[in-house]
Design a protein around this nucleic acid. Structure first.
Lengths: 126, 126
DNA sequence: ATATGTACCATGTATGATAAGGGTACATAT
DNA sequence: ATATGTACCCTTATCATACATGGTACATAT
């Protein structure tokens, strides 16, 4: 894997890993079924913490870009190419923005929106 | 006015002021047309900053609980009782919660939701 | 043994943003 | 003069959060 990590970059490390794996899929450098380096291996290569790479892998799996097969390792997802095009972040932004705009037109202040948001996020058990 | 402010309370000061004025209206301690202490007066009594009380008054006026008549002072709104029952906060909570729940069932993490939320609120000009 | 993903405990650090306060000023009226 | 609501300027302190890190452990397989 030719992944380059820039510690100076404001983009979080785990996000940089995600970006570059997605790019490798979209450009055809990595194809469905092909194996990825193990979490520990990649973390070692990039001089990152295991947890940082694990986080990237976890999110990539949720997004259908990769598949974790336990002790057998991690592989590119069959639908990786299509799923790499989906920008979940943008979608979340749209959904939230729609709701917030609806509140604002009713003269709900940003303060009040923030307070409500904080309440919701805090009274939640993960 | 028998307003009691608790600095230890995590509820923001301006919200505490709002709550108690609404309560006074609902309990009949304050009736439509009756005057409220001036912003500076109340701020002085409660040992709060003018701006904090002004914020509470501004929001209460938006909610139709009080009426500001410029140099003449501030008074209880004619429809204060009905409008005090409208819990805008609860409504905002519901609206937001609905959207957030929809995101969560799609395995969007709370972290991602928070990041998106912060983006939206910051790129907004009041 | 060695390696896989995964899960849990924990800490530190830095950033960002809120709420609150301080000050000053204005037009309006008594 | 004095008081009203309102609108700006700027500052500060506290808090919450994300990120990254460290360690340990487990079931599973080669």
């Amino acid at each position: 894997m030719e992944i380059i990590i820039d510690i100076e970059d404001p983009v979080p490390l785990f996000a940089q890993v995600m970006e570059q794996i997605k790019k490798a899929v979209l450009s055809g450098k990595k194809n469905p079924g092909e194996p990825l380096p193990s979490i520990r291996q990649l973390a070692n290569d990039l001089e990152l913490n295991n947890k940082t790479v694990a986080k990237a892998y976890r999110l990539l799996e949720r997004d259908g870009v990769i598949q974790a097969r336990g002790y057998r390792g991690t592989f590119i997802h069959p639908d990786a190419k299509a799923n790499s095009r989906v920008d979940l972040t943008a979608w979340v932004l749209e959904e939230l923005n729609e709701t917030i705009e609806a509140l604002r037109v009713k003269d709900v202040t940003d303060s009040e929106i923030r307070i409500a948001f904080t309440n919701i996020m805090n009274n939640h058990v993960n």
